[in-house]
């Protein structure tokens, strides 16, 4: 395979280094079966995220994109390599040290149905991180009102249970929870994949709107090239635990260099019959060519 790609941390406007830097990170899970080899979810991945930037992480299932997000959140064990946040090494922190990062790094998960505790009201869900941080209850409740407004949810939402909301609305609640403590980085793990088409673009617009207002950075994990193109400044493409291509979103998602990214792009159907027909023809030609060269195996067989 291609060796891990070095991501140039270009210096911009005299900023002092990236907000998050992932350096040669490996995540290894011990095998559950006796005597079979351990599973390498990440094989030496490096990536930087600057303040105010969205880095899209795109790949197919099993590529390790979700694991990378979880490693940044401290939910997956980093076997070797370092993750630095704001210059500080966070990959070796224990649970207690990690708690101090909760107002810096936050998360929005894919499934808005299981990421919100069904037994708690929206108010409880949103005040929980604030009360944990020692905010007074009255202040926290005021903050929740502001947050609901920010994510365009009705004010009376706070006394209702998650099940009373639609998928898109629940994802807004999850976004509000991530915003509670004014984080500087949000890891978004497929946050729009479970949503209907019309909600998808609205929620993505909300993400962009928040970023433009607060300057938060996103590590945006998704399998969908069109989503990643819409929201990311830069894109990293993952395949089998490695980052095989990085670059500006426009470039990677329209004229990729790597064969795998090209295959990914050609496989995504366009909502236009004529253009899809030509894309399909291009894909079939491309895969016939690849079949001869065989740089990577066909995941389906």
């Amino acid at each position: 395979m291609i060796a891990s790609v070095e991501v140039p941390a270009e210096s911009h406007n005299g900023s002092d280094g990236p907000l998050l830097s992932i350096e040669n990170v490996t995540v290894q899970y011990p095998s559950k079966k006796w005597r079979s080899p351990d599973f390498l979810a990440l094989k030496g991945v490096s990536l930087d995220i600057r303040a105010g930037e969205t880095v899209g992480l795109v790949g197919e299932s099993g590529s390790g994109k979700t694991t990378l997000g979880r490693a940044v959140l401290g939910l997956a064990p980093v076997t070797t390599g370092l993750i630095r946040y704001d210059g500080q090494v966070i990959s070796a922190m224990n649970r207690n040290q990690r708690r101090s990062l909760s107002d810096e790094i936050q998360v929005v998960f894919q499934d808005p149905y299981t990421s919100l505790n069904p037994a708690l009201t929206v108010l409880d869900i949103l005040t929980e991180p604030l009360l944990t941080a020692g905010t007074r209850r009255a202040e926290a409740e005021q903050r929740v009102k502001d947050l609901l407004e920010q994510v365009h949810l009705p004010r009376d939402a706070s006394n209702r249970l998650p099940r009373e909301f639609s998928g898109g609305q629940r994802q807004r609640i999850a976004i509000a929870r991530a915003l509670c403590r004014d984080p500087r980085l949000i890891v978004c793990d497929e946050p729009v994949s479970a949503l209907d088409l019309s909600n998808q673009s609205r929620v993505l617009d909300l993400f962009i709107e928040i970023q433009e207002r607060t300057g938060v950075s996103y590590l945006f994990v998704t399998h969908d090239l069109s989503v990643v193109r819409y929201i990311s400044h830069r894109v990293a493409v993952m395949y089998k635990g490695e980052i095989i291509e990085t670059g500006d979103a426009a470039k990677v998602t329209t004229q990729p260099k790597e064969a795998y990214t090209q295959k990914l792009l050609l496989a995504a159907p366009v909502p236009d019959p004529a253009r899809q027909a030509s894309r399909r023809a291009a894909r079939q030609k491309f895969s016939a060519k690849l079949h001869v060269a065989g740089p990577f195996e066909n995941p389906a067989s």
Binding site: L75, Q110, D111, T114, L116, E128
Partner: peptide, 10 residues
């Protein structure tokens, strides 16, 4: 996932 979210919330 809500337990993961709670962990991330500190």
């Amino acid at each position: 996932l809500f337990v993961d979210a709670a962990k991330v919330s500190g």
